[in-house]
């Protein structure tokens, strides 16, 4: 007992003060929201598109729903027309908002007034991994640790869909998980939300086009929030959820 108390004192207080205080510092090499400057592109050059593993780049636009943040495009571009900033905020409400053209970006807006009244102070989510590689899942679990303490926002991952206000889906939705995902969705009482987290859940990610998967959950469920990344940083996820609930900015 005393040993546990002494250990507790030594470990100290570790919960991030964000969003009321500064956010945890992201590493210098972190790849956050990219910026594109198509005016720099040479005519007919498609060096970035040629190296992109998921076809996220085309016609001077970068689709964050497909992007793995691997930065192969940065390396390939002869004109430095694409760069990745350290900005973690990237979640969007509409699929088309995930497409970056230039520097402007439309971040997720809050739910409409009635949904905010219902979910704003308490949002319980059932997580379904449907072909996720356990990177998205691991960094969702991180939100429950003392470093982030998701519970202080009234947000919680719950064990039963019957207790949930919505689903948070990861993975490209494998054919073998389709039925389980739809049954879990049907078991959530209305009104309910869907959050698609990670490139796989949004677009299939590296598994796009595979007959064994569905290119994400968008064709099966009405998605309310898209959180890009491979996997999304915990800060990107938390930022997205708080924006959705109207708790930020």
């Amino acid at each position: 007992m005393f040993k546990a108390l002494i250990a507790r004192l030594k470990q100290g207080h570790r919960t991030t003060p964000w969003p009321d205080g500064p956010a945890p510092e992201l590493p210098e090499r972190f790849a956050g929201r990219p910026r594109l400057d198509a005016s720099r592109c040479r005519d007919g050059c498609a060096a970035c598109a040629a190296v992109c593993p998921t076809g996220a780049l085309s016609g001077g636009a970068l689709d964050l729903g497909r992007c793995l943040f691997c930065r192969a495009c940065v390396e390939a571009c002869p004109e430095r027309a694409v760069e990745f900033t350290r900005e973690p905020a990237m979640a969007a409400r509409r699929r088309e908002d995930l497409v970056v053209r230039g520097g402007a970006y439309r971040l997720a807006e809050a739910l409409e007034a009635e949904s905010r009244r219902v979910f704003g102070r308490s949002l319980k989510l059932r997580q379904v991994s449907a072909g996720g590689c356990n990177a998205c899942e691991s960094d969702l679990n991180v939100l429950g640790t003392i470093g982030w303490d998701l519970g202080r926002f009234g947000v919680q991952f719950v064990a039963s869909p019957r207790h949930a206000d919505g689903l948070l889906v990861t993975g490209p939705v494998t054919a073998n998980m389709r039925e389980a995902l739809l049954k879990t969705w049907a078991a959530v009482p209305s009104p309910k939300l869907v959050i698609a987290a990670g490139a796989c859940a949004i677009s299939g990610g590296p598994y796009r086009g595979r007959p064994e998967a569905h290119d994400g959950c968008g064709q099966l469920l009405p998605v309310d929030l898209f959180i890009p990344g491979c996997p999304p940083h915990p800060l990107t996820t938390l930022d997205g959820i708080l924006r959705l609930l109207g708790r930020l900015g």
């Binding site: 992109c52 593993p53 998921t54 793995l68 192969a72 590689c133 356990n134 998205c136 491979c230 996997p231």
Partner: peptide, 13 residues
């Protein structure tokens, strides 16, 4: 060009 990304997400942990 996709191979290394499939390998890295084969078991993402």
């Amino acid at each position: 060009r996709r191979t290394i990304h499939v390998v890295e997400t084969l078991a993402g942990d």
